[in-house]
């Protein structure tokens, strides 16, 4: 019986988080995913979204930009393009990115629509996650 989960979030820019937690909620590509210790082994893709972990009474939120989760009974490894803790998100930058993406969507003929949509989704999700604060 595993009591705790070891959560490891890695990005090309290094480890974002490593530690033991009690519960994880991630946004899988097929829907929200709650993970408790002793989960069945699972590999899933993640969409742009929020990842939350609970450790005792502490809950923290991360913005996760597209990635994979490898889930085992006692460890969860998140491999993401980028990941930021809610407090570390640069809201100003996200807002600017959102505006830019919206501008581009208005002139679809000039820009790649898929890219602009992804950028819009990213920035909106960043802003959303940034509003959540770590609770202890």
């Amino acid at each position: 019986m595993a009591e705790k989960l070891t959560l490891d979030i890695v990005t090309p820019y290094g480890h974002v988080f490593t530690g033991e937690v009690d519960e994880i909620v991630a946004s899988g590509s097929d829907g929200e995913l709650g993970i408790l210790p002793d989960h069945i082994p699972l590999i899933t893709t993640l969409k742009i979204g929020m990842l939350t972990y609970r450790k005792g009474s502490e809950t923290a939120h991360f913005f996760v930009n597209w990635g994979y989760a490898e889930i085992g009974p006692d460890r969860v490894t998140i491999i993401a393009d980028s990941a930021e803790k809610s407090e570390d998100i640069d809201v100003e930058r996200a807002k600017k990115a959102m505006q830019r993406a919206e501008e581009r969507l208005k002139q679809i003929e000039k820009f790649d629509e898929g890219r602009a949509r992804a950028a819009l989704e990213r920035s909106m999700m960043r802003i959303q996650v940034a509003e959540k604060q770590t609770a202890r």
């Binding site: 590509s29 097929d30 069945i40 082994p41 699972l42 590999i43 899933t44 994979y68 085992g72």
Partner: peptide, 29 residues
């Protein structure tokens, strides 16, 4: 590493779908 090579994973959405995203990514990496 991953648990053991023998561990049977469940895949979501599917093994094929994950591979087809992961492999191009791995080339980038």
């Amino acid at each position: 590493g991953p648990e053991e090579a023998s561990t049977v994973f469940i895949y979501e959405p599917s093994q094929q779908a994950i591979l087809s995203q992961l492999l191009p990514k791995n080339i980038e990496v």
